[in-house]
Nucleic acid binder design. Structure first.
Lengths: 204, 204
DNA sequence: GTCTATAAACAGATAGAC
DNA sequence: GTCTATCTGTTTATAGAC
């Protein structure tokens, strides 16, 4: 079964390795701060290989920005699965700690994407589109919780999902800045307060 | 009363103009993407003037990072004043719309600060220290609200302030990405839900 | 398809004139 | 104190060998 890779397969592998290395390098050095030589080296290739697979630094970054939302989707899927057997607030709280403490490249890379999009308005809709699917998935996670607490009349699932996502991103960054100010349980606690508040609002 | 400026005063003025130009340029092009020539030009000076006032690009950026928290403090002050005559949630909601829509350089510059600090751990404590005073001020704004709803027993003002700040930053970014997903009243609404939830939590 | 060598542009920083 | 001119290293991107 193990056979020699076809030309198309090795090329796809090279591309994938370059994209991975680019993600790491852009996260660690920033878009402008990372050089194509650095990226190629991190992937174990030369500059020439990079240019034969991508149009250049900018095109490589854009491709990363366009495709890396799928990573978010996978994460959202996992959370949705976890949330079926335990408290969703707890599952999301755990995710925050993991992302903030373990996946140290995640938040910086997202920040780079956002900054690039702010500075290149054409790309902003690409970023927004990439964030839509994870957002929808979060909405579907929020929906049953809203139904359970009877807050469906007061709050739109999509808007609550936006709030949850904003809180998540803000707290991840804050935890990197000052870990002590964002204890492990803070995100989960905030979510419980939020849903309790929505539930109470519907009773008025 | 209008007299010629002393040498010390003109130098101080040059420094201030350079710092302002640096803030704008770093926000628009990023730390690595902005050139010292660009910054000097935006301030109406030459490269030489920049180097005679600052150690270099890096030192200029650090000075900006260190001193620009005072801008946050002034904003926090203003909000605190507004919050005494109207609903704090409303005052904060208005601030979010203003910052996201009018002060277009604010969020990108904060993102640049954070990214630089993530990549230069020595600077992280400087950033954290600069954020502490605005955070404390927000805590003092939150405290009376907590007292009023009777949530003082359930929630620490400092932790609630962290949540409010994270939500604020997250929503400002999200509003730049997709304005329609963050309507004007969303932040205020989220805050009301949060405080209602805290109040309800204390009654259990 | 990937590598090495190189071209051309540009960056940060310094020196000396004024 | 600020400006102009320049030095030095680095960058993106390409051309041609293998």
């Amino acid at each position: 079964m193990s056979r020699r890779l076809t030309r198309a397969e090795t090329k796809a592998r090279t591309r994938a390795l370059l994209l991975d290395a680019a993600a790491r390098t852009f996260a660690r050095k920033g878009y402008a701060g990372a050089s194509v030589e650095e990226i190629a080296e991190a992937a174990g290739f030369s500059i020439g290989a990079l240019y034969s697979n991508f149009g250049g630094k900018e095109q490589l970054f854009i491709e990363l920005l366009t495709t890396r939302s799928s990573a978010l989707i996978e994460t959202a899927e996992r959370i949705r699965a976890d949330a079926e057997v335990e408290d969703p607030a707890k599952a999301l709280g755990r995710l925050l700690v993991e992302v903030a403490d373990k996946d140290t490249d995640f938040a910086p890379l997202q920040a780079e994407f956002w900054l690039y999009a702010v500075r290149n308005p054409d790309v902003m809709q690409t970023l927004a589109a990439g964030l839509r699917e994870p957002h929808d998935q979060l909405s579907r996670l929020v929906e049953p919780v809203l139904d359970r607490v009877g807050g469906r009349a007061t709050a739109e699932p999509g808007e609550v999902a936006t709030i949850v996502l904003a809180l998540f991103q803000g707290l991840v960054r804050q935890r990197r800045t000052d870990p002590a100010s964002v204890p492990d349980e803070l995100f989960g606690q905030a979510l419980r307060w939020l849903f309790t508040g929505i539930a109470a609002g519907s009773e008025r």
